[in-house]
């Protein structure tokens, strides 16, 4: 790095004398070198810890690797389509993909709708607004392990407060095991997702709302537009690009999500998403090849979805 960083305080004019063997660097080239030098550590870390592993996952997906045989397998062992084939034909794969899709769509829509409502209600100043706004961000900043644990306890059939009051006030016949029965587990996980990530949408939408010029709404009001009409015809069109962008971001992030589902249900009761399945292959079955193949399938499916999305909404996002 020391070779490329330009010396301090040297101006190009001072380097002119004496016919130089090498031509002195122009300012432009020095800038370029400095830029590369400064960005090099970032690139190195990113390539070493993220770039290479991604490539390697793809390689592993086409190899027969188990944790036990790991030491014997080289980077370029024999390649096989076995893993991909096995993954695609294992029972439950299609279900997992379907569940992941429902979960991602539900979580995305839920969090954006909640975030939009939240942004609309705290848009105008009122007393205690700062505190309200900060409180609304709590689910997003709090540690995932802590909030999933609290949800588990709240929804617990024996000592959970939800079932206690549900039976007392809402007249439920029996406690509902929200997270362990097929009929409610996925919906509960989606509700958690919406609860935990609506602050993300809220932040972006609020920032955009505050950038909408006041005159626009004022003019609409003078023309006799009611509040709902102003929302429909003035605010919503202004927000659509952000909503479209949030749609992609949240969908991708939810699709990749591991922690939330793993911590809430462990993937049982019909909530097994692809990431959790990959984790199970990796640790419980120590079948690295299959895990990698699964992960590659996950990434490919994700890329396809995003491309489809961009095809339809690309202009709005851009």
């Amino acid at each position: 790095m020391t070779t490329t960083a330009p010396g301090p305080g040297r101006s190009p004019t001072r380097e002119r004398p004496a016919p130089p063997r090498r031509r002195p660097l122009t300012l432009r080239r020095r800038e370029s070198r400095a830029g590369l030098a400064l960005v090099a550590p970032t690139l190195l870390v990113t390539i070493a810890v993220i770039g290479i592993p991604i490539v390697w996952t793809v390689v592993l997906a086409f190899q027969r690797v188990r944790l036990a045989t790991l030491r014997k397998t080289g980077l370029f062992g024999e390649f096989t389509m076995d893993n991909i084939d096995r993954v695609l034909h294992t029972p439950g794969f299609a279900d997992t993909l379907w569940v992941t899709l429902i979960y991602s769509l539900g979580g995305t829509v839920g969090s954006i709708v909640l975030g939009l409502v939240a942004a609309l209600v705290v848009r105008r100043p009122f007393r205690g607004r700062t505190l309200v706004r900060a409180s609304m961000l709590l689910p997003y900043v709090a540690p995932v392990v802590a909030v999933t644990f609290v949800w588990q306890v709240m929804l617990d059939p024996q000592l959970g407060i939800v079932n206690h009051w549900g039976q007392r006030l809402l007249g439920w016949d029996a406690p509902v095991p929200f997270l362990s029965q097929e009929s409610t587990a996925l919906a509960t996980v989606i509700a958690f997702e919406a609860w935990r990530y609506f602050p993300f949408a809220f932040l972006f939408l609020l920032a955009r709302l505050q950038a909408v010029p006041g005159e626009l709404e004022e003019a609409a009001r003078v023309d006799g537009a009611t509040p709902t009409q102003r929302f429909r015809h003035i605010l919503l069109p202004q927000l659509l690009p952000v909503i479209a962008l949030l749609g992609v971001l949240r969908f991708i992030m939810t699709f990749n999500k591991f922690d939330d589902v793993y911590l809430l249900t462990g993937g049982s009761a019909g909530t097994e998403v692809v990431s959790v399945r990959v984790y199970d292959f990796l640790t419980a079955r120590t079948d690295i090849g299959a895990a990698a193949a699964q992960a590659v399938v996950l990434a490919v499916v994700l890329i396809v979805f995003v491309l489809i999305y961009l095809r339809f909404f690309g202009r709005r996002v851009g």
Binding site: T46, P53, T57, R71, A295, A299
Partner: peptide, 23 residues
Amino acid sequence: LFLAVYLFPSIVIAIPLFVVFTR
């Protein structure tokens, strides 16, 4: 590059890291 990295599934990265770190 950063955007792509940011949005890439961390479980995909986890597998080889698991392998490398084990080794």
